[in-house]
C-alpha cells in the first residue's frame, strides 16, 4: 500500500473515531450531566406563543444562541401559536415544576391583560405565572404622514381633533392591543378627543393606510416605524413612554404635551414553571441576565430595532403592576369602538 492510501485510511479512521465520539457525547451527555446533578442537564425549550416569523419569534430566535452559551445546553425555540397567545399561556400556567423544569416561556404585556376583559372569561391572571425577567419593551408612538399640513405635532393634532370630533381617522391594531389602549386612554382622559379608528392585525396594513391617505394618523411601536421616519414617509408626533425615546430624541412624550401619563408599549417577559424556585430559577435568571448583556446580542437587536429592557425581582413586579393599573384605568372593553 502506498503512503497516500495509508494516510487516507488513517484519516478516515480518525474521522470515524471523532464522529463516533461526538455521537456518543451527544447521546450520553444529558445522562452524564444528570448523574453529576448539573442543572440544566438537557436541552431547554423556549416557548414563543406566536407563529414563526413574527416579532416575538424573531427576537427570541436571536436570543436563543446567547442563552444557550450561558446555560451550556441547547436552547430550542418552540412556537405554540393560537388564541392570540393564550393557547401557550394556558399551558405555561399549568407547567409542573417537577417535570417541566427545562422549559421557559415568553409572555407579552399589556397583551396578556386582555384577561381583565370580562367577556373573555379567563381563569388565569398574573399570579398564575412565574416571572423571571422582563426582556424587551417597544414603546408606542403616534405618527402622521411626513407631508401632512393640517397638524405637525401632538398639540396641533389634539386641537384639530377637538375642533373636528370623530372626523380624524387613526389606524391601530385590534381592540385590546397596546396601540388601541393608547388611543382609548386619550379618548377617556383628554376632553373632546374623539377619533374614528380603522383596526388591523399587522403593521404593514396600518402603514399602508396612513401613507396612502386612507387614514390620518397611525398608532404603532417605535421599532417597526423608525425606518419609515428615516425614509421621510412618516413623522412621529409623540411617544407613549415615561421619557423621550433614545432613537427619537426630538419627539415629545404624551405626558410632556398633555400632562396625562399615557404609557403604552409592547413588552416581553420570560417565565418558568409556576412553583419552580430555588437554585433552578436562579440559574435561569443568571443566564438570562448575562445573555441579555452580551454586546454581540445587543448589536443584533439594535439592527432588529428591538429595545432591550431588563428588569428583575421587585422592579419587574412593579412594572407588571403599573401596566395592570394602566389597563384597568382605560377599561377598553367598556368603550364604544
Amino acid at each position: 500500500m502506498d503512503k497516500k492510501m495509508e494516510k487516507k485510511g488513517k484519516d478516515r479512521r480518525d474521522f470515524l473515531k471523532v464522529t463516533a465520539a461526538a455521537s456518543a457525547a451527544t447521546l450520553f451527555a444529558p445522562a452524564i450531566a444528570r448523574a453529576q446533578g448539573k442543572f440544566p442537564n438537557g436541552p431547554v425549550q423556549l416557548v414563543v406563543p406566536f407563529k414563526t416569523g413574527g416579532g416575538s419569534d424573531r427576537t427570541f430566535r436571536l436570543f436563543a444562541p446567547y442563552l444557550q452559551k450561558e446555560l451550556g445546553v441547547p436552547v430550542n425555540v418552540i412556537n405554540i401559536a393560537g388564541g392570540g397567545g393564550w393557547v401557550a399561556w394556558q399551558q405555561m400556567a399549568k407547567w409542573d415544576p417537577a417535570k417541566d423544569d427545562h422549559i421557559l416561556g415568553t409572555l407579552n404585556f399589556p397583551h396578556m391583560f386582555s384577561y381583565l376583559d370580562p367577556r373573555m372569561k379567563r381563569s388565569e391572571n398574573t399570579e398564575s405565572f412565574n416571572f423571571i425577567a422582563w426582556h424587551s419593551l417597544d414603546p408606542c408612538i403616534w405618527a402622521i404622514r411626513d407631508k401632512e399640513d393640517r397638524f405637525d405635532d401632538l398639540k396641533s393634532f389634539i386641537e384639530y381633533v377637538q375642533k373636528n370630533p370623530n372626523q380624524v381617522i387613526m389606524s391601530t391594531t385590534a381592540v385590546g392591543s397596546d396601540d388601541h389602549m393608547g388611543i382609548a386612554f386619550a379618548e377617556k382622559f383628554i376632553d373632546n378627543f374623539k377619533v374614528r379608528k380603522v383596526y388591523a392585525n399587522s403593521d404593514k396594513k396600518k402603514i399602508n393606510e396612513v401613507i396612502n391617505s386612507t387614514t390620518d394618523a397611525v398608532a404603532g411601536n417605535v421599532g417597526f416605524y423608525v425606518p419609515f421616519m428615516l425614509e421621510r414617509q412618516l413623522k412621529p408626533i409623540c411617544v407613549l413612554h415615561d421619557e423621550r425615546y433614545e432613537a427619537l430624541p426630538a419627539t415629545r412624550t404624551f405626558e410632556e404635551v398633555t400632562g396625562q401619563k399615557n404609557i403604552s408599549f409592547a413588552g416581553r417577559t420570560i417565565v418558568c414553571a409556576p412553583g419552580l424556585g430555588g437554585e433552578k430559577k436562579a440559574i435561569f435568571a443568571a443566564a438570562i441576565k448575562k445573555a441579555m448583556n452580551n454586546p454581540e446580542y445587543l448589536a443584533k437587536e439594535a439592527k432588529n430595532k428591538n429595545n432591550i429592557f431588563y428588569l428583575e425581582g421587585d422592579d419587574l413586579k412593579a412594572k407588571i403592576e403599573e401596566t395592570r393599573k394602566f389597563v384597568e384605568s382605560v377599561k377598553f372593553w367598556e368603550q364604544k369602538t
Partner: peptide, 26 residues
C-alpha cells in the same frame, strides 16, 4: 416601501432588518 405584501415577504423583511438592511429607496 418596507410594507410586505404577504406573510412570506414579512418574514423576509424581518431577516433583511436583522442583516442591517433597512428597506426603502435608500
Amino acid at each position: 416601501l418596507g410594507i410586505p405584501g404577504g406573510i412570506s415577504a414579512a418574514v423576509i423583511l424581518g431577516a433583511l432588518m436583522i442583516h442591517g438592511l433597512n428597506p426603502g429607496m435608500r
